[in-house]
Simulated assay, not measured.
Amino acid sequence: MTRWENYMNAAEKVITGYDGSLPLHHYLKTFFKAHPHMGSRDRKWVQQLVYQYYRLGCWQKERPVQERILLGAFLSSQGPDELLAFFNQEWNQQAAATLEQKLALTGIAWDAKAAFPFLDHLSAGIDGEAFTRSHLQQPHLFIRARPGKKAAILRLLDAAGVPAQQIAEHTLALPNGTKTDSIIADKSWYEVQDLSSQETGLRFQPKAGEHWWDCCAASGGKSILLFDKEPNIHLFASDVRASILENLKKRFAEAGLKNYSSKVLDLTSHALRAQMPRTRFAGIILDAPCSGSGTWGRTPENICYFKEAQIAEYAMLQKNIAANVTPFLQPGGTLVYITCSVFREENEEAVEFLRGHCGLEIAESGVISGYERGADTMFVAVGRKIKTIEA
């Protein structure tokens, strides 16, 4: 049996054994640990085939697994490779063709609704056809150069032979798989952060001396972006997960950030006020827990395992959190509401809730489209407190 057949069999074994209860990359680590005979090249090929299978979403699910793996490999390919050549020479010769040409060669019509069953929930302005097709390609690796470090970073990347495309003033796009930590030794020089995520920071307008609260801080990427815009703020960071805040502290230490406090908080708790260090903030970043549907180009397995009912569950959670945190916004203060979702229930409907129930005047809201730029798709709204609501 050839190594290409072995790769295909291993990929099928992963797919048939996977149930979606773990992120796919965690499951793959477990699988490879149980198969120690597979070398790094073998693991890379198998992982690629598995992800290419899931990039088809729910489209053509009735096909045998190995047929669908090969179809995903062909439609996702950027050029010829040995595996395609082994299984289908004609497809391999057209591996660099456009998606339309590839579909014509297969004789199969693309069905956006079948690929992404949640199209009816998309936020306004998202092109469903283009969005679903974008999942066939892995989004780029983006880094944000921290103030004053871009030129030095570009020199290191150039010396390492890594092509870097400058997207914005501080944003660089790198080839996926680039080992940034082995090229740029000083982690305080940059942050790995998606392009659309970086663009949410354009809505941050902190002033020196102000108190800001990153209330769903996770590992702190938005907080670091906030600090880079204005180092002389007082930051309070919270998250419901203690382990995540430990990651934040480590990331802040690497970034050289010290002027902050942090605390584990349940933002749905009725006792939230008693646990807060202060009752008024000039700015609140609410990077809300969400479906993550705008990031599924990076985790395409979610398309197959996400349940439609979860959209309403996330929307309810977001409104609950918004209702609890907005009373801590001082009159005239700013709330920046962010999701990495493409669903209107988590986006536009959340904005209506902020306007109608939280005493906010909405200055801006809309989708940050990433699906045609090799990036995640996100949503951001900026609200300002127009009346005092007691916490």
Rank of each mutant, 00 (worst) to 15 (best):
E5P: 03
E5Y: 05
Y7W: 14
A11R: 14
A11P: 11
S21C: 03
P23Y: 11
K29H: 05
G39E: 06
D42P: 09
V46G: 06
Y54A: 01
L56P: 04
G57S: 09
W59Q: 07
W59P: 13
K61R: 11
R68I: 02
L71R: 02
F74S: 09
S77A: 15
Q78E: 12
G79F: 06
P80T: 11
L83W: 07
L84S: 09
L84T: 11
A97D: 13
L99D: 03
Q101T: 05
K102Q: 10
A104Y: 07
T106D: 14
W110A: 02
A112Y: 01
H121W: 14
H121M: 06
G128P: 00
A130T: 13
A130Y: 02
A130Q: 14
H135T: 05
Q137T: 12
P147D: 05
I153P: 07
L154W: 02
L156Q: 15
D158Q: 15
Q166L: 05
K179W: 06
A185F: 01
V192G: 00
S196N: 09
S196W: 04
T200R: 05
G201A: 15
L202I: 02
F204Q: 03
Q205L: 10
W213I: 01
D214W: 12
A218Y: 03
F227Y: 13
L235H: 06
D239G: 04
N247I: 03
K250N: 06
R251Q: 10
E254P: 14
A255Y: 11
Y260C: 03
S262C: 08
V264K: 05
H270I: 05
A271Q: 10
G283E: 04
I284K: 08
P289N: 08
E301S: 12
F306W: 12
K307F: 04
A309N: 13
I311P: 12
L317D: 08
A323H: 12
Q330A: 12
I338H: 05
V342T: 04
F353I: 00
L360N: 01
G366L: 06
G374Y: 08
F379V: 06
I386G: 02
A391V: 13
